[in-house]
Amino acid sequence: MPAITVRVNGLEVTKEVGARTLLSTFIREQLKLTGTHVGCDTSQCGACVVTLDGKTVKSCAVFAWEADGADIGTIEGLADGDNMHPMQEAFREHHGLQCGFCTPGMVMTAVSLVENNPDIDEDGIRHGLEGNICRCTGYQNIIDAVKTGAKAMRG
């Protein structure tokens, strides 16, 4: 069983993982960071999105051992204690979530979209979210949240 060392939300951890341990399983079961959700088995839904060396990935389609040496960012690392990240605040302000299950992947994706393109427009946001399925909101409030979040992130 290989041991891997990763930095998760800034903290370094070393753990043994099985060959077939997915990154999502590693994060949820071994690190007990259950904010990363699994909503499908064919890598379509995007609920499990985390960042790997700054890029969004579906953690259900990456093996934990592939992440050895990498920086991993999960939803738990966004807020600073009780102070939510501006994107999280924007989701709350715009009612960009209902059941909350797709939300962690959605927020991680939204932050990354804006980091890569601070002036992203509505079309860009809609296309940028094509790897994240929400069944509750109809997306409009998510789009509005990302716009507001982007503005706040631009400062």
Partner: peptide, 19 residues
């Protein structure tokens, strides 16, 4: 009213069955 459950959901602290 903004939702009181949102902080939990947005910060990854929702508590679903598989958690």
């Amino acid at each position: 009213q903004r939702r009181v459950e949102d902080f939990r959901f947005l910060t990854g602290h929702g508590h679903y069955i598989d958690d």
